[in-house]
Amino acid sequence: MASFFSSVRQGFGRQSNKSNAQARGNGQNLPSPISQGSGSPLSANLPPVPHSPGPNSAMQFETDPGAEQQAPQQRKPPFFFREEYSGLIVKGNFMTLAAKPVHVEEGEWLAHQVVEEYRLLDNMIKIVKTVNEKTGAPICNPNSCPTMSAAGHTYTWLDQQKRPIKIPACQYIMLVQKWIEGKFDDRNTFPTDNKEPSSGLSSGLSTPGAGTPIAAGPTNVSASLSSLAGKDWLGKSSGFPEHFESDLKSIFRQMMRCYAHLYHGHWLEPYWDLGCTQYLNTCFIHFINVGRTFGMLGDREMEPMLPLIQIWEAKGLLQPPQSQSSKMDISPVTAAPPPGTAS
């Protein structure tokens, strides 16, 4: 487990002893979210989840009818939507981790970021894949999580006939991971080398490199500059395909759904039981910051986790959405340590 925590901390900066002690102390001093007399922590249930009003229908979820049975004033937010459980393993806001270096092309930067975000999410998913010694089954299994759900919403998968079907959360997450890793391994989507175009010329003539200007044919002098330059897209100058941005948004959307399920389905077991809710929070806030800063996520995708995001905004750990395009006051972070396949 120590090596796991070390892996999660990687990329969040150097860890100080003082911050380490504070990270451990914050978790230990909090009152246990498991009520006395509830029996084993493994059998504890989350409190009623607050109803989430009207997210975009493009998310294609189903609302749990039981969520309507309780009056709004009687509902209590789940533990992870309470300020006392919103702590992190790092200090400061997360804008410095997302800020693109001046001389790095945005497509290259986002390719690096999405791989890092997936690494952090994968570490969190590994925890719910751990086999429970008592049951002999993973913590997230078809019996405990028969559907991929979060905040009263059920996400569906498209079968081979493009029909939305409900599948267990563990199967949904496995398919998402397989799809994302397939994207990363696809050199047409995530090229790793600059490919020189084939010239078709006889040997002895040099082939121009990727950075060598090539003369264009005759053009109409009255044509617009944009038409003369050709169509542009995110990452074009770095060799990424035209569909790169849409692929990134699809990857972020699917990762967002995984995070939402991990919180709503497994915050108590196993994250609270293992004392690593702050690690989950730290991975998630970094993911939200990158996704929102570069327009990979909108409020509709983040809606199941919006109360927690708003807590971090109120604390100054995240910039409010309306401030993303303005000049941001960035404080350094110091360590306290597939399209068409899912609907």
Score class of each variant (00 low, 15 high):
M1N: 01
S6G: 08
S6W: 03
G11A: 10
F12P: 00
Q15M: 10
N17W: 14
S19Q: 12
G25A: 14
G27R: 11
L30W: 01
S32L: 03
P33I: 03
N45T: 12
P53Y: 06
G54S: 14
P65Q: 06
Q69F: 15
P78D: 03
E83S: 10
E84Q: 14
G92Y: 07
T96V: 12
V104Q: 10
E105S: 11
E106I: 10
L110A: 04
Q113S: 03
L120D: 09
D122Y: 13
I125K: 07
V128W: 04
T130W: 08
N132G: 02
K134I: 11
A137G: 01
C140D: 09
N141F: 03
P142V: 03
S144D: 06
T147L: 02
A150V: 06
A151W: 10
A151H: 12
G152C: 03
T156H: 06
T156M: 15
D159S: 08
K162S: 09
K162A: 11
R163V: 15
P164I: 11
I167D: 00
D193A: 11
D193Q: 15
K195N: 08
P197I: 12
G200H: 02
P208L: 06
I214R: 08
A216H: 14
T219R: 13
L228Q: 10
A229F: 05
A229Y: 04
W233Q: 04
L234A: 05
P241N: 09
H243S: 11
E245K: 06
S246G: 09
F252M: 13
M256T: 15
C258E: 12
H264G: 03
G265V: 01
Y271E: 02
T277G: 06
N281G: 09
F287H: 01
F287V: 05
N289P: 03
T293E: 06
M296N: 05
L297Q: 02
R300S: 15
R300F: 12
P307Y: 08
P307F: 08
I309L: 05
K315C: 03
G316M: 02
S326P: 02
P332S: 09
V333E: 04
A335N: 14
A336F: 11
P338Q: 13
